[in-house]
């Protein structure tokens, strides 16, 4: 990797792919983090607490790697989107929590809102400098 700023150049494809890969990995770890925090009962259950800490460090590390290349607005939207969907689905499966149709609908609304918000935020940030 050169230390030149390659964000807007066509030859940064490999860097982009690595960054998006890192972002997806961060999203998966974020799901693990959300479920662990939920399962820890306010950090009174040792095993869930330890896994929360491990996932916390992993998700932040991969997110920060991804955000070196990917715009923070888009990166954060994708990361939190994966986390939200994963937490709802796996919370229902693994932690036996409810996921009703109404809840799913409003969760989908929230995720759509975040995507809209972040894309609008990024449009300005990714405009080439004059």
């Amino acid at each position: 990797m050169s230390n030149a700023q390659t964000r807007h150049l066509p030859d940064s494809d490999t860097g982009n792919k690595r960054a998006w890969g890192a972002l997806l990995v961060a999203g998966v770890f974020e799901v693990g983090y959300a479920l662990s925090v939920g399962g820890s009962q306010a950090f009174t259950v040792l095993t869930w607490s330890i896994s929360a800490i491990v996932f916390f460090l992993l998700t932040l590390y991969f997110l920060s790697v991804a955000l070196k290349t990917i715009d923070v607005g888009i990166g954060y939207a994708v990361w939190a989107g994966i986390g939200s969907i994963g937490a709802a689905v796996f919370g229902a499966i693994l932690l036996n929590q409810s996921l009703t149709l109404y809840q799913s609908f409003w969760l989908a609304v929230i995720i759509a809102g975040v995507i809209c918000l972040k894309l609008a935020d990024s449009a300005k940030l990714t405009r080439p400098d004059p």
Partner: peptide, 13 residues
């Protein structure tokens, strides 16, 4: 978790 986590990240956004 699903509800609390979503509100947490989205409100942060």
């Amino acid at each position: 978790v699903g509800v609390g986590y979503s509100m947490w990240t989205s409100l942060a956004g």
